[in-house]
Simulated scan of single mutants.
Amino acid sequence: MNEITQRKTVLIPYEIIVGASEGDIEAIRLVLDHFTGYIITLSTRILFDEFGNPHVCVDEDLRHRIEAKLVSKLLLFNAS
């Protein structure tokens, strides 16, 4: 078995999702924390310096935009 098939998916508990959709700040923070690794992966960019050397960095503006979009969709989510 390879490493990917052995990894278990950890789901966010339903109560946390309901709380986040109702505007509970702590629940929203837990959801953001859950997706932090994925958001950072999505917002990682390769930039080149003046000598053409590549540097991997996180585009903070893009990271904040993705987080804001996630929060806005959480608040629109109807969990009932």
Rank of each mutant, 00 (worst) to 15 (best):
M1L: 13
M1W: 04
M1A: 15
M1G: 13
N2T: 05
E3R: 10
E3G: 09
T5M: 13
T5W: 13
T5K: 11
T5Q: 14
Q6G: 10
Q6E: 14
Q6W: 01
Q6H: 10
T9Q: 05
V10Q: 07
V10A: 04
V10L: 00
L11T: 08
I12Q: 09
I12V: 15
P13N: 13
P13S: 12
Y14T: 10
Y14V: 08
E15C: 04
E15W: 08
I16H: 03
G19T: 08
G19S: 09
G19I: 02
A20Y: 09
A20I: 02
A20C: 05
A20G: 04
S21N: 05
S21T: 12
G23A: 07
G23P: 00
G23H: 06
D24Q: 12
D24N: 14
I25P: 00
I25G: 01
E26F: 06
E26P: 01
E26W: 07
A27E: 06
R29A: 03
R29T: 01
L30H: 06
V31I: 12
V31G: 04
L32N: 07
L32M: 13
L32E: 08
D33G: 07
D33W: 04
D33Y: 09
D33V: 03
D33E: 14
D33M: 08
H34F: 11
F35M: 02
T36C: 04
G37R: 06
Y38G: 02
Y38E: 13
I39M: 14
I39G: 02
I39V: 14
I39Q: 07
I39P: 02
I40W: 06
T41K: 15
L42G: 14
S43V: 01
S43Q: 12
T44R: 06
T44K: 13
R45Q: 15
R45S: 11
R45G: 05
R45T: 15
I46T: 15
F48P: 04
F48V: 05
D49G: 06
D49I: 05
E50K: 09
E50I: 06
F51T: 13
G52N: 12
G52H: 07
G52P: 02
N53A: 15
N53H: 10
P54C: 10
P54S: 14
P54N: 11
V56N: 11
V58D: 09
V58Q: 07
D59C: 13
E60S: 08
L62H: 04
L62S: 11
L62Q: 06
R63G: 00
R63D: 03
R63E: 07
R63Q: 14
R63H: 08
H64V: 01
R65I: 08
R65T: 09
I66N: 04
I66T: 12
E67K: 09
A68V: 01
K69Y: 05
L70P: 06
L70H: 04
V71F: 01
S72L: 00
S72I: 02
K73W: 01
L74A: 08
L74Y: 14
L75E: 10
L76D: 14
L76M: 10
L76T: 07
A79W: 07
A79I: 02
S80I: 01
